[in-house]
Design a binder for these strands. Structure first.
Length: 376
RNA sequence: GCGGAAUUGGUGAAGUGGUUAACACGCCGGAUUGUGGCUCCGGUAUGCGUGGGUUCGAUCCCCACAUUUCGCC
């Protein structure tokens, strides 16, 4: 079954919206945060735990699954859902981000991108057609177009020729797309330039995708202001009835600002990566459990958090696990951090329902940054 | 009892008669946004067993003592 989406409400004073995704007899609400499970697993967590946190869509990655175990294996297993035992919706990234993180500019050509396989050094060519073909086989519910993800600091000239090529790649990918039950999203690029974002959005929309992503953000230490411009200049030119997804965005404040500009979906490695390094999100800001001050802190990370970790474990215990590099520590923090972001989206949805998202943002900023937000 | 060797930060240790005592681990901070998970970046000995001496100058040379350790009786 192909998933379906409907916008249920738009906030009166902002571009924020509430929506519903219909999938497999269930309703998932947007705005939504999607945990990342690159190698067909959200690191350290079981699908049951993920569902317990009220997660909806989870991500997986074309590039990684292509190399290991190979899309054929996943196909033989009966597709990604069966392979990893997750019956909620799954989105696969196209490998486009790996163009940014693994390939050099000189390896990018009209045909596709030359990669050095990070596992054994083999040279590999990933093309728009190949990426879509792999995603068709993986049988995810949402596939992404294969794009070039240039750094936000790239020059105007570079971005311009890059988005033009990404549009040509999107067209090729759409032609190659054969999986009828799978949605295919186009990706808007263009840095923080309104004319480039507009051009990229309008040309991509012409190809009529099932949804649209905003790419090329949060990849280069660009300013928040530029990131939010990129959001705004993209959603402004996208059809209202389709899903909008900000790729790789997962700092709490960035999610709020994205929602304010009309974005429905967010994904980020931050909750799980930060967890592995001992950090936890709290409504009063991010904390580092490695800090000595938690040695004798026998209280939960957050008194008001409803996650398994906060209901059962103390900061002192988790600190100990992290210090000893015990994997259970990373697990407990991953559970908490993912639940924190999902719970944030629940609060955001409630605020949109009440038309109070701007007030919610103020309150959140006040608590999270203690009045220091915006100071450098 | 006799003879030898050693003694550098929380730990393992490098080192030189002359500005800021290498490195590693640990510890203390920080980073991390479509994940190349055990990563990156900082900080961390006002002092080289103790007391004397030689020297313009000693952690480094000499003497004594203490402690540790090895061998012999």
């Amino acid at each position: 079954m192909k998933l379906d989406f409907k916008v249920k409400k738009e906030e009166s004073r902002t571009s924020a919206r509430l929506g519903e995704i219909y999938y497999n007899g269930k309703i998932y609400k947007t705005p939504m945060f999607m945990p990342v499970g690159t190698q067909a697993t959200v690191k350290t967590l079981s699908p049951e735990e993920i569902k317990e946190m009220e997660a909806g869509i989870i991500l997986s990655n074309t590039y990684h699954l292509w190399l290991r175990p190979g899309e054929e294996i996943v196909h033989l297993a009966g597709g990604l859902h069966k392979f990893m035992n997750y019956d909620g919706p799954i989105l696969t990234d196209s490998g486009g981000f790996q163009v940014f993180s693994l390939a050099k500019p000189k390896d990018i050509s009209e045909e596709g991108v030359l990669f050095k396989n990070h596992l054994n050094g083999d040279q590999l060519l990933l093309t728009p057609e190949k990426s879509i073909e792999i995603q068709n086989k993986l049988d995810s519910d949402i596939a992404m177009s294969f794009d070039e993800c240039p750094p936000a600091s790239a020059s105007y000239e570079y971005l311009k020729q890059s988005i033009e090529r990404t549009i040509r790649w999107a067209k090729r990918g759409k032609m190659a797309h054969k999986n009828e039950k799978q949605m295919l999203f186009g990706i808007v690029q263009g840095g923080a330039y309104e004319d480039l974002r507009k051009f990229s959005a309008l040309e991509t929309v012409k190809l009529d995708f099932d949804g649209y992503s905003i790419g090329g953000v949060a990849n280069d230490h660009e300013s928040k202001e530029d990131m939010y411009k990129a959001f705004e200049y993209s959603t402004k030119y996208l059809p209202k009835e389709k899903l909008r997804y900000a790729m790789g965005i997962g700092e709490p404040i960035d999610i709020i600002e994205g929602v304010l500009r009309g974005i429905d979906l967010f994904d980020c490695v931050s909750p799980t990566r930060l967890a592995r390094h001992g950090h936890a999100f709290t409504s009063l800001g991010k904390i580092n459990l490695k800090n000595a001050k938690y040695k004798k802190d026998f209280t939960p990370i957050s008194e008001d958090c409803d996650c398994y970790t906060c209901k059962n474990y103390t900061k002192a215990y988790i600190k100990h696990l992290i210090n000893c590099e015990e994997s259970f520590g990373a697990r407990l923090l991953s559970i908490h951090n993912i639940r924190f972001l999902i719970s944030l989206t629940e609060k955001i949805r409630m605020a949109i329902q009440n038309d109070t998202l701007l007030e919610f943002r103020q309150e959140f900023l006040q608590n999270y940054y203690g009045g220091t937000y915006g100071e450098e």
